[in-house]
Amino acid sequence: MTAEHEYPIVVEGLTKVFKPTRRSKLPEKVAVNDVSFHVRKGEIFGLLGPNGAGKTTTIKMLSTLLIPTSGSAKIFGMDTSGGDEKRIREMINLVSGGERGLYYRLTGRQNLRFFSNLYNIDGNKQDALIEKLLEIVKLTDAADIKVEDYSRGMKQRMHIARALVNDPQILFLDEPTIGLDPEIARDVRSLVRQLADSGTTIMLTTHYMYEAEELCDRIMIISDGRNVGYGTVAELKQMVSDTNIIEIVTSDDPHDTVSKLLTERRFVHINTERIAGRYCTRVQLKDDTDVLSEFDSLFSGYGIRKIGYDEPTLEDIYLSLVGSDEH
């Protein structure tokens, strides 16, 4: 197997700078800053990061929609801005989350036929292909209904069907489950896994950590356009091995105490979530001394239900690397 087939996506020093327009008063924006990674064939590669971190810009550069300012993005050894765009586009496709991107006045079947023609797919093969795609995304019964009458979940599945018309070897998924109800999101994740199992290389961006943890073989976390963590979930956990996680579950909201703790530099991150009527506070700290008794005392007024050390989750790693300090 040649290097470009073993690693269909190779990115080196990728940088994108958006220059302000003449009328814009905005400063120059470095959306992606010297990012390098590679993706193996059949792998699901996750790109995580907060809003505006550069995930979508990276995917757009890889999918030939944007030209990098510097560095290179290669798909099967071909530069995405080096004159081979047509060949690259035959082998890739992109699914973006959200409602836009389909022709609402056309039926699902008409949408698929239109895009099949843009990929120059043999007319004799189109009927069977469209039936197969509709079956995969469970939209056979809605094939002849106009897309404007589809629910959000149906539209998202139609996006996936549209992105599969050219049987892509690489599929970019930009927040494919955003806004979907849990059942449909689960179906989409299952479909993504099936595609990867059948040899499709997948690059996924998501805000849902459990989704990334469930699906991705390797992950890259970017913040402000920079790579801040890259590897398998286990490798990423190693990056924060010097960080202890304490989980405290309380009956009352420990907001006041958490606000005070946030001002202390020894804590990497503190986050409180309300789960099933209780307050779950996770504290990350770079301190290997036993601080449980200190926390037991600090949170005692809130009705402690549970307190103890915990293993870091992907979300803990993400928050630690991105350096967020949201409450």
């Binding site: 496709n93 836009r100 609402y104 843009l118």
Partner: peptide, 18 residues
């Protein structure tokens, strides 16, 4: 407006053909 310009641009077909 409809967000279909990017899926078209991502195909091997030149926009002018459409």
């Amino acid at each position: 407006y409809n967000g279909t310009i990017e899926p078209i641009m991502m195909t091997p077909t030149h926009l002018i053909d459409v």
